[in-house]
Amino acid sequence: MPKRSAERSSSLHSSGMGGVYALCLLGALALMGLAMWRRELYLPLSLAMIALAMLPFFIRFERRKLRAEELLLVAMLGAIAAVSRIPFVALPSVQPVSFIVIMAALVFGAESGFLVGAIAAIVSNLFLGQGPWTPWQMFSWGMIGFTAGLLRHTRLMGSAWGRAAFGFAWGFLFGWVMNLWGLLGFIGDLSWPAIAASYAASFPFDLAHALSNVFFLMLFSGIWLRILGRAKRKYGLLDP
């Protein structure tokens, strides 16, 4: 959370997080190279890559001394995102999880956005059952939050249209990342036509996700920013 961000950015160097980032990045690249070179074992290597990509976020979260408010806020937003599908059960592939993650990230920053997304994925899978999709969901929702948080002071995220475009793009990106685990693991001969066919097959679902993101962001982002911003001001979870 953005509080004490000056203090934390200095601790980034002192606590050796830079080295951790570099190691994780190098490891992920090495794994990708190995998969490309051997042309096999795509699934285990890609899982290891995802784990490496998420590791720095969790290490940072573990090292931070969190105020109770900050921890409760992340946990509550994750839980809200996880149950937010319930009022929309009648419409398949319409879910406001991505929208809530984006809102959390816009108000509380990139790291909190990542955590809310990842925790929402963990928690909903703890209830529905883990599967090979769990790490991919954690990664995708986490990244939605992280990127939204990084862009939160830009002109793009300042305007409703910009936010809608962001949500639309992530609606498709999310679906494409989620297609990857099936493609990488179980389509033996990874060819462009096969990839294109799988993306074409998932197009209606991705489109529904993207359009519902746009719908939610256009109509409700104002009120959500107000609700979350109020909590942030009231409990001193403010930017310095």
């Binding site: 573990e62 992340v74 946990a75 149950v83």
Partner: peptide, 19 residues
């Protein structure tokens, strides 16, 4: 990962309540 596990536990506790 004690802090993550704690956050997830708290979050899990909220799910039945929120439902």
């Amino acid at each position: 990962a004690p802090q993550t596990a704690f956050a997830v536990t708290v979050s899990m506790r909220f799910v039945p309540l929120l439902t």
